[in-house]
Design a binder for these strands. Structure first.
Lengths: 141, 141
DNA sequence: AAATATTGGTTGATTTTGTAACTAACAACA
DNA sequence: TGTTGTTAGTTACAAAATCAACCAATATTT
């Protein structure tokens, strides 16, 4: 392809779109609760899918184990989650949100749904379907 | 929306898609030339659009000025670009690729076009059009 | 002209990420 | 029973991003 422009380069477009849309939502979890994106993802997983180990979060959220480890520590300090070793295999610890963590999740979950709906309001349903399909493929999930 | 899943959250999907597709292309500029993404973007701009100042790159590429400043320094050390103060306003310096920098750009530009075509090969033309339109809107460009 | 504000760009300190090495617990197998 | 391998998770150190302070050149205001 000749005259290939930077705006035609899909990874670049994706980065820009991801940064822009993430920055918009960041104001909620960072502004209200001083959380990082990694922390927000961990909270989302535990809140949405129930207690699980760090390893399961790694696999489901596609985050590196060091990121998860640090996010979990930070959330523990904030008293948003608690950890408990599993008796039959003491390498595993089950993570679960505290009551306070649950409230934080509920608040952010609602904001996330609203924020997402707002983002998608500028597209038709057909566009939304195509977008979701393409992104899912590109993300490899 | 109830039962809102993480895979439905557009900023999350975008991040994943951006990371995956960027990681794929990174092997070229990092593997062959030891460049960072910021450096690759600067090279792309100068190669594709001609000599310009750091400020112009900031605006066009949506990069923070410290990122650009550091990328430019690194590229100067690698002898991929040169800088020259403008006579009538000595705060501005015009950046341009060296001959070597031009060759690096040509190589990566070709790879970028090929890589992008490969990414998009999994979609129909209609899907591609919708994807590009949606991403452009989401990126705010 | 002097004082002030603005602009392009750099630097330094702090925060966050990435990479690799590490520990502790368990599993497999000789 | 030991030896070896694997797995969950942490830590230490290096690489990179972020943010604020900074400098020098030019514009603006008085």
């Amino acid at each position: 392809m000749t005259n290939f422009d930077l705006r035609d380069f899909t990874p670049y477009l994706l980065s820009l779109a991801a940064e822009t849309s993430s920055a918009g939502f960041q104001t909620y979890y960072k502004g209200r609760y001083g959380m990082l994106r990694t922390e927000w993802r961990v909270v989302f997983h535990l809140g949405r899918y129930g207690p699980m180990t760090a390893k399961e979060i790694c696999d489901r959220a596609r985050m590196h184990k060091t990121k998860v480890s640090r996010a979990v520590s930070a959330l523990e300090v904030k008293r948003y989650l608690s950890r408990r070793e599993q008796a039959k295999d003491r390498r595993h610890e089950t993570l679960r949100l505290t009551a306070e963590g649950g409230r934080v999740f509920a608040d952010l979950y609602e904001e996330a749904a609203r924020y997402d709906a707002e983002l998608l309001a500028q597209f038709t349903d057909e566009e939304h379907v195509v977008l979701q399909k393409c992104l899912t493929k590109l993300a490899g999930i």
